[in-house]
Design a protein around this nucleic acid. Sequence first.
RNA 1: CGGGGCGUGGCGCAGUCUGGUGAGCGCACCUGCCUUGGGCGCAGGGGGUCGGCGGUUCAAAUCCGCCCGCCCCGACCA
Length: 567
Amino acid sequence: MRLTRLYLPTLKEVPAEAEVVSHQLMLRAGMIRKLAAGVYSYLPLGLRALRKVEQIIREEMDRAGGQEVFLPGVQPAELWEESGRWAVFGKELLKFKDRHDRDFCLGPTHEEVITDLVRHEVRSYRQLPLLLYQIQNKFRDEVRPRFGLMRGREFGMKDAYSFDADDAGAERSYQQMYEAYSRIFERCRLRFRPVEAETGAIGGSFSHEFMVLAETGEDSLVSCTACAYAANVERAEIGPARQASPAEPERPLEKVATPGMKTVEEVSRFLGVEPRALIKTLLFETEQGPVAVLVRGDHQLNEGKLRRHLGCDLLALASESMVEELTGAPMGFAGPVGLKARLLADQAIRVVRNGVSGANERDAHLVHVNHPRDFQPATFADLRVAAEGDPCARCGGEQRVSRGIEVGHIFKLGTKYSEAMGATFLDEAGRERPMVMGCYGIGTGRTVAAAIEQNHDEHGIIWPVPLAPYQVYILPINVKQGAQREAAEGLYRELTDQGLEVLLDDRDERPGSKFHDADLIGIPIRITLGDRALKGGRAEVKRREAAAAEEVPLAEVGARVLELVRG
RNA sequence: CGGGGCGUGGCGCAGUCUGGUGAGCGCACCUGCCUUGGGCGCAGGGGGUCGGCGGUUCAAAUCCGCCCGCCCCGACCA
């Protein structure tokens, strides 16, 4: 492709709306343009990178026994009512009516559609297992789209669905997808980590997220420095707290005045104690009645863990009036001692010695609070958000927290959808049984963005060869010089004939502009043709990530480039 | 949904507080000349209902009201 023909609007300046580097670079490199909040157009360069990711995914899905389908983006409400998600999915589901006043939505995911498709056609265990996938845009009306392609409202996704006759089969399918995903992200040359994850609105029993490691990631993940355990912080289990040794002696319980001191920060500063000595008392309303939860002052409650522990659907922080009713004090002075409510505690509370808590009395706290002398929770459990340095739940080693971009997510769904929607088959014994399902997603645009987050410098993108929109950038310094132009055209033909994807910068521009654009769009190999090297019958070959170029005789450039592309 | 901010030519911005000077600057774009190893130089030129609607005023980009769009923080979330 010739630069004089390519639709490549690059930008010198950073558009004000772009926060993260991948968004900035995709705009500047002319890959994408925004149409509305969270809705983007792909330009030729961006589309080529996207297609590279999609092709790798296709190959690995096919290799794992998948078959590609293409499902509708517009879906009728009835299907969603059948699965029960029309009401539950919430405002992210973009709903509308057709001219006959029938309800539809833009598909945010395709479990309903695929289950509907399969239930009509699959009758026998002989037709299982089945793995179907598609690559298509989804629409989720996100509350706050941001970071360009990282969190759009309309976004590209590969979604796959497995149907098995039993749990063991579903387990195998899941495992196959786990391996396929690992291969996909390896082939994309990404630094990533599979982590145990929450299942959220998709439902199901078990899942892994594939996280691309990046500081700008929206997710936090916890990994053990000693063993293989890794999980999304939302999910990450924490091992039992270590007892401080030697244990401090218990001191007598004492009430102190803390006028107006409500937050952990205020109380700890006022009393001159570390936040970790405080016992936070959080009050919740649930359908099972009010619940009080204790967490150390420097820890954060994990509502997901609490919800699972209680097995409740409704879980909301208690209102001000509720707090007063339960504790007899305004918000900010709740404590476990003498509190008449169901009491749970994070396991770290067990080893807090001479702690500080609210006194259930306005402007007062208790110091030297000790378990079990002063309070006795019904249970201790793992209820907090994992933090740097927490003990690993599997091996007791130390956990580390890092940031990641969720590019893939695999779920073991079980029979949630097949039962709700009647996707059944007859087994060998002639019994009717629900299919056991799994679903597996990869954000395609997000993967491109993640690759840029991991591969860039101050000048622009540095594409890994497998994702590069083009592999080679031929840059004649001055196209008005016949020798340079001819050498460039010759190499362009030769490399293109070899099957390489080549850009020829045939623009009559200053060299500086061309070098800057070449660096910005990040093509892995640049061939510069200027008088300097050309006099000796050579071209300069430079890898984008390298500091210096090498001079290569014109006749050997083709071979050298192929070597670099493959290498 | 709560809090904050922004909207002036394709992009980045100034001007708005304190109403009135020919709507301006940089980049990009067009023409000509010049130049060609890291975003050259000179000259000329095109492009704006100042987000929209309404109001105040002799006069509104500027003041007031409503609406729309976008961005950031939080809550939320495959």
